[in-house]
Amino acid sequence: MQKRGLSFYLLAAFFAVFVLFLYGPTITIAILSFQGPQGGLTFPMNGTSLHWFRNLYEQQAVGDIWGSFRRSMALGLIVMAVTVLVSVMGGLAFRHRFRGSTVLFYLVITSLIIPSILISLGVGILFNLLDWNVHWATSGLGSQLTWTLPFGLLIMFAVFNRFDASFEEAARDLGATNWQTLKYVVLPIIAPSLIGVALFGFTLSYDEFARTLLTAGSYNTLPLEIYGMTTSVTTPVLYALGTLTTMFSFVMIGLALLLVWRSRRTAGAS
């Protein structure tokens, strides 16, 4: 390997600035959410306090954030479960070409790149015409799946493209049925990737806004609630909420990474 030249340090500096650009604003509002009770939306800090975090618990100060948090949490878990299941099934099917697979593949890609507002509008009108009530657990769920499923499927495609089929052949040679091969050979091997799919499913749903806008009905999910707050709330309580949500996302990501790391290690050990 050649020595680290000037270009390495220039690129490293560029990278550092980029990371600062990525995280700087988030860190700033994390600091500002500890503003004193008289503090405003920008620096300087007017003392430090937990005032704005306490404020989150007061019903009248903000909207129904805890209700919307519970709904987002429930919706995220449902989306996660459906995304994992449907992606694995789809991934298994797409290991071989079948009649219509190309059309379906492009449908998945379309789902990924279609402007979100079309999903929101289309599902909204569809439910309206059918006289169905839009609700976060029906129309909201379906709309979010059009965003999470493509990610889940693309991960599964990548996983199965690299999958060594000789493991399955070995299992079959030893007399395993298709189901046993799937359960004892294929699924354990792809397990770490499934954690990734689950992470995508949960967090993309938990933060989803554009596709839920017209499809969540009268009970808001958390991002919708926050979006509503941006026009009416002008105190650091917004930052406190933002900081809590981001912390929650970080915990989820950390948990997923830890699980991936552990399952990789046990897979390596056995």
Partner: peptide, 23 residues
Amino acid sequence: IPFWTSNIIRMISWIPFLGRNGI
């Protein structure tokens, strides 16, 4: 990692940077 956090919060977090009395 920021991909898995809320876009709206990430937008809001520019306020203290860019506002009239911002950083």
